[in-house]
């Protein structure tokens, strides 16, 4: 059953069409990869689905309900969240408090419960040791995990991951992928936007490809990499 659907979503910034008529379907329990060159509209698509941008046209549905242009906090509470490409923890708070906020407002927990849950989530993502540290003082790799932890605390059904593995070493990427698989096994559905192709290919059941704001392919990972248009988009025409 499809959990999240986007139909014909377009977004224009002035004269620039960042997205034109993109469709997306995410089934329950699935991991969907989204790839595409820089500026192909991946982040814009995520922003349109989570209410950060209001789509110029098209419709977004979550669990069968229309959420097009609904406020971000409402979409979050319904169970759809995203991590940001540029990690922005609340630097004035500790790591634990960052996650705590997600539980307090995304899930509506009391302070007491949210604290326990936040600690459990930090254990899961491997940040328990730095829980008391200021969020501004931890490494980039840890911040990426913190971003994920903050999303998890809101009790989501779907997480949209926007280049959550950018700037990480191969070992770090592997451990993030491991974590994502585990979360998926526990029933969480994921949409993974990534620049690093291997990362997406390894984890996704299906992959869709964006180029210049349009969907140019959607298939199983192995089929997508063989697609002529995809190779063109990534490497230029002469390689195709």
């Amino acid at each position: 059953m499809s959990l999240l659907t986007a139909r014909g979503v377009s977004k224009n910034f002035g004269a620039l069409a960042a997205l034109s008529g993109v469709d997306l379907t995410l089934n329950e329990g699935e991991i969907l990869g989204v790839i595409g060159p820089n500026g192909s509209g991946k982040t814009t698509l995520f922003n349109c689905m989570t209410g950060i941008h209001k789509p110029s046209a098209g419709r977004v549905e979550f669990e069968g309900r229309d959420i097009t242009g609904k406020p971000t906090h409402g979409i979050c509470r319904a169970g759809l969240v995203k991590t940001s490409q540029i990690v922005q923890p609340f630097t004035g708070m500790s790591v634990l408090e960052n996650v705590l906020v997600g539980g307090l407002y995304g899930k509506g927990l009391s302070l007491h419960h949210a604290r326990d849950e936040a600690m459990a989530i930090l254990e899961k993502v491997g940040l328990a040791e730095v829980a008391a540290k200021p969020a501004g003082s931890i490494t980039v790799a840890m911040r990426r995990r913190l971003e994920l932890a903050r999303c998890l605390a809101t009790g989501p059904k779907v997480i949209l991951l926007d280049e959550n593995m950018a700037g990480l070493t191969p070992t770090e990427i592997d451990s993030v992928l491991e974590l994502l698989r585990q979360l998926n096994a526990e029933g969480l559905s994921l949409v993974v936007v990534e620049h690093i192709m291997q990362a997406v290919m390894g984890i996704s059941q299906r992959v869709m490809v964006l180029d210049y704001g349009e969907k140019i392919a959607e298939d199983a990972p192995a089929a997508v990499v063989a697609d002529k248009r995809v190779i063109e988009a990534y490497l230029g025409e002469e390689y195709a």
Binding site: T50, I52, P71, T72, H73, G74, C76, R77, V81, K82, S84, Q88, F90, T91, G92, M93, V101, G102, Y105, G106, K107, R150, C151, A153, T154
Partner: peptide, 15 residues
């Protein structure tokens, strides 16, 4: 959270 980053605050469910 609002003081630090309003967009991020909205993304964790804060109205």
């Amino acid at each position: 959270a609002i003081h630090e980053d309003e967009h991020a605050a909205a993304q964790v469910g804060i109205n």
